[in-house]
Design a protein around this nucleic acid. Structure first.
Length: 421
RNA sequence: GCGGUCGUGGUGAAGUUGGUUAACACACUGGAUUGUGGCUCCAGCAUUUCGUGGGUUCGAGUCCCAUCGAUCGCCCCA
């Protein structure tokens, strides 16, 4: 029997975990400076939390890990926003939190897709959601937060694509226009687009299969159906980005994968040629009706999600060096019959704050020193039978290769002195 | 979900038109050197074994089929 991780999943081994710790620190620090607070929601929810009516996205329609438990259907979360909004409403946080309520999350998401570089079935997202205030300034600030993190990781080859979907009235008018336009061309479109035609005709526009078809090319433009209010809102968002010095490209084909978006939508992509087919680093937008959908008041929200695996891969491709994990300060060696002296000495040093490894089984001196080498310990404490009897021990500075014999009670002091140099 | 490429020890890998003992290097373990490591030298280290399961053959790591996984492109998306 051959045991291995399921397709599209992977282990993060100790060798690589320091990257994740470092990245999480950068993320938490940045989120905190924007005054976002962490929220942790379950990894699975009732299927109905994700499978909302009229959602045409592949993610919801064919990529969810759902399972039955008794008569209930649950789904491993494919994205973070729905759970956050559900929690916001469930705990009536609109009554107790200052608005906009700002949340962030870090954790695994699950989608049943064909794995590829930058696309796995269990992957990690960092996301933010702010709820309760709708303004161009907030939209711009949200994008700025994501850009901040990307910049801190030394990722410079990025493109910000942005668009507006307008408000309900604009979208309703546009949707009608699209239906009218595509109806006579239905047989020219792909199967997915037939579903989109029913559920959300806007998504036909960014369909890759039908991208070059005449029907798509001649489709009416959303910008022609935006009412004055939506148009002005978008202009203001762009002005805010200009003020923050964030370059962007307006892409009126950008409609995003989830159907709950309204007004601002954006996508930040890597422009590196080696980033593969999965170039999107983070993406999100504004949603006017999600809070209300889950039973809360009529509040608008805005957020985005970053794919952390992609972030790490890109940072490394651009030469970013993540902070290494803590190394060993002291290695304790025992020679001959020294009883529990090694064990006890190591504990004392740890309680004093040092990272200590100790040789806890009998082996040759050479093997012990080799082991000490491999850990990269700055100091080696050698406890020998004779010294132990005399109440002393040896301390060696690995780099200097100098060794002194000190009284047991002076060990800490000696190492502290060396540390100061 | 569709198409292409790939899969040999702990690691990087060699392996000729199928032919007998699966190179080489690194790492690791032991010894030279049983109380002082990083250099050097010596030895060991895949053995019903070449992702897994079948098949062809006198003979398969090499050929065929299936399957699992990785990877690239499509689709989708973070």
């Amino acid at each position: 029997m051959n045991y291995q991780t399921p397709r599209g999943t992977y282990d993060i081994l100790p060798e690589e975990i320091s990257k994740w710790h470092d990245l999480e620190t950068v993320i938490r620090d940045t989120a905190s400076r924007y005054r976002y607070r962490e929220i942790r929601t379950p990894y699975f929810e009732s299927t109905s939390v994700f499978a909302r009516e009229n959602d045409s996205s592949d993610m919801v329609n064919k990529e969810m890990y759902s399972f039955q438990s008794g008569s209930d259907s649950y789904t491993l979360r494919p994205e973070g926003t729905a759970g956050v909004i559900r929690a916001f409403d469930q705990h009536k946080l609109y009554g107790s939190m200052e608005l906009p309520a700002r949340f962030y999350y870090i954790g695994p998401m699950f989608r049943h897709e064909r794995p590829q570089k930058g696309r796995q079935r269990q992957f990690t997202q960092f996301g933010v959601e702010n709820i309760g205030v709708k303004s161009p300034e907030i939209d711009a600030e949200t994008i700025a937060l994501g850009i901040d993190i990307v910049k801190k990781l030394g990722i410079s080859s990025v493109r910000v694509c942005i668009n507006t979907l307008g408000d309900d009235a604009s979208r309703a008018a546009y949707r009608e226009a699209l239906r009218k336009h595509f109806e006579p061309h239905l047989d020219e479109l792909c199967g997915d687009c037939h579903r989109r035609f029913e559920q959300n005709p806007l998504r036909i526009l960014d369909c890759k299969v039908d991208h070059d078809s005449e029907a798509v090319k001649t489709a009416p433009r959303l910008s022609d159906y935006l009412n004055e209010e939506s148009r002005q809102y978008f202009k203001d968002v762009l002005a805010c980005l200009d003020a923050l010095g964030i370059p962007y490209e307006v892409d009126d084909r950008l409609v995003r994968g989830l159907d709950y978006y309204t007004h601002t939508v954006f996508e930040v992509q890597s422009t590196r040629p080696d980033s593969g087919a999965q170039a999107t680093i983070f993406a999100g937008g504004r949603y006017d009706h999600l809070v209300d959908y889950f039973g809360g008041p009529d509040l608008s929200g805005m957020g985005f999600a970053i794919g952390m695996e992609r972030l790490i891969a890109l940072a490394e491709e651009e030469g970013h060096v993540f902070a290494p994990e803590r190394s060993t300060d002291v290695y304790v060696i025992g020679l001959g019959s020294v009883g529990t002296a090694v064990l006890k000495t190591a504990e004392e040093l740890r309680h004093a704050g040092y990272a200590v490894e100790a040789n806890l089984h009998p082996r040759s001196l050479k093997a012990q020193f080799k082991s000490a080498d491999r850990t990269g310990a700055k100091y080696v404490v050698i406890i020998g039978e004779e010294e132990l009897a005399a109440g002393t021990l040896n301390v060696k500075n690995s780099a200097e290769r100098t060794q002194v014999t000190v009284k047991q009670e002076e060990l800490l002091h000696t190492i502290e002195e060396w540390e100061k140099q």
